[in-house]
């Protein structure tokens, strides 16, 4: 598969790409399907690496900050593709590594990743990513507010300090 390995892409563009890849990884397949079909012009693409299910070994650190250790594996699906459509102003390669075993999820995530790198496809794709990110943020906030409803104050009972 070495022929499909592209040059490491460095530079300031990575931060934005890292953000949208995280959002795409957290989206559900149904959400991505809906966003994809809502695109004004969904591009066609060709496979560089068809979706493949595998494992990522998840690591932790002793005490949270110490020696690294292997915690356990998680199922992950990856793929890579290239936009076949020259109409978007650039030839772009899309990559995806997403939690789970849903090949279509990985495919759509990679397709969006490619589209987001093209001058002409970027706009609508960015809107989609924004909607997905907002939804995840709203869910997280709701979970967190529920958790915060369970925040307590413990009082220590000390003998002799009871109010008279």
């Amino acid at each position: 598969m070495s022929e499909i390995i592209t040059e490491p892409e460095q530079g300031p563009g990575n931060e934005a790409r890292r953000r949208w890849m995280a959002v795409l990884a957290r989206a559900s397949r149904a959400e991505l399907e809906a966003e994809w079909s809502d695109l004004p012009r969904p591009p066609s693409y060709e496979w560089l690496r068809r979706p493949e299910v595998g494992l990522v070994m998840v690591r932790g650190r002793a005490g949270g900050t110490g020696q690294a250790f292997n915690l356990g594996e998680m199922a992950v699906t990856r793929c890579a593709l290239r936009l076949a459509d020259a109409a978007f102003g650039a030839v772009a390669t899309g990559h995806a590594y997403v939690k789970g075993r849903d090949r279509r999820h990985a495919e759509l995530a990679a397709a969006f990743d490619a589209l987001l790198q093209t001058p002409d496809g970027r706009g609508p794709a960015q809107e989609a990513v924004r909607r997905l990110a907002d939804r995840r943020a709203a869910e997280r906030e709701q979970r967190s507010r529920k958790a915060n409803a369970t925040r307590v104050e413990f009082f220590t009972m000390v003998r002799g300090e009871n109010p008279r």
Binding site: I4, I5, T6, P8, E9, Q10, N14, R18, M21, A22, A25, R26, V56, V58, G60, L71, M74, V76, R78, A80, H95, Y97, V98, K99, G100
Partner: peptide, 19 residues
């Protein structure tokens, strides 16, 4: 969970897990 895929050369976030 973040990994650094060889073909990208930078860390990407592949989703979240409960721990």
């Amino acid at each position: 969970v973040e990994i650094v895929p060889e073909e990208l050369g930078f860390a990407i976030d592949i989703g979240e897990i409960t721990v």
